[in-house]
Design a protein around this nucleic acid. Structure first.
Lengths: 125, 125
DNA sequence: AGGTTGATTCGACGAACATCAATGCAACCG
DNA sequence: CGGTTGCATTGATGTTCGTCGAATCAACCT
């Protein structure tokens, strides 16, 4: 089920200091990978889906619970969930009849780290 | 120059607990506003532009320095900078002949906060 | 004023995207 | 087995987006 996720969220920051926006200009590859993830977040429906999954106590939400929360067709919701999966933000698991989605916290953390300023050299006040 | 920025990055978190993804499902408005910002980040060129601006020690970068860093036309770069501006991520100022861009750190911080998990109620291990 | 350089705006075009109806696949149940 | 329900995939369509060339605006400099 969790086939091809993006690597940018899984890498272990081996090269000293990753891809923080404020540390050094991103090269094309880093920017391309990161852009795919942010693009996945750049849709209201996907953001709501992600927040519905992330804010669930048990950590898991059934698709059967997500779909009726929107005034969109079932294939459309499925499509958005697929994009969130391919972005490496969530994972899914089938248990019997139903499919459950779960957030991959490491992905969100890494993304937040990218945005966190490394209080770069006195941002001249 | 800094005309219409999005409000989502400027609000002061008055309503108890903002729009953290893990706290509660986002409503349509929150999701819509946030999506605009993430959409602005969902392009490799804009990410590189933002990182070039953010990683600059002085905090400011001249457009004349950004444009030649890409194999794209000047209008295209200007367009991307405009989107970053409208997303409330950067601000620009004209000084004489040249225009300088600067990151709005609060915007990035707020965005990072949205992605930061509030270690919600025991993510059942 | 006229000319030059830096930057934004405009108009157009192809690519990518969000959406849906129809179909396909998987698991349950009689 | 055949029927039903839950979810994913396919194919098609209207919209948005990224890009460019051309035109425009802003500031400098004779």
């Amino acid at each position: 089920m969790s086939k091809q996720e993006l690597v940018v969220l899984a890498q272990d920051d081996a090269d000293g200091c990753c891809g923080r926006l404020g540390s050094a200009p991103l090269d094309e590859d880093q920017a391309g990978d990161l852009a795919k993830v942010f693009k996945a977040l750049g849709d209201p429906v996907r953001l709501r889906l992600l927040s519905m999954i992330a804010s669930r106590a048990g950590g898991e939400v059934c698709v059967c619970e997500l779909t009726p929360a929107f005034e969109l067709s079932q294939p459309t919701i499925s499509h958005h969930l697929k994009l969130l999966r391919q972005a490496g933000l969530v994972d899914s698991e089938r248990r019997g009849t139903w499919v459950y989605y779960r957030v991959l916290p490491a992905a969100l953390e890494r993304l937040a780290a990218v945005l966190t300023a490394p209080q770069a050299a006195e941002v001249n006040a």
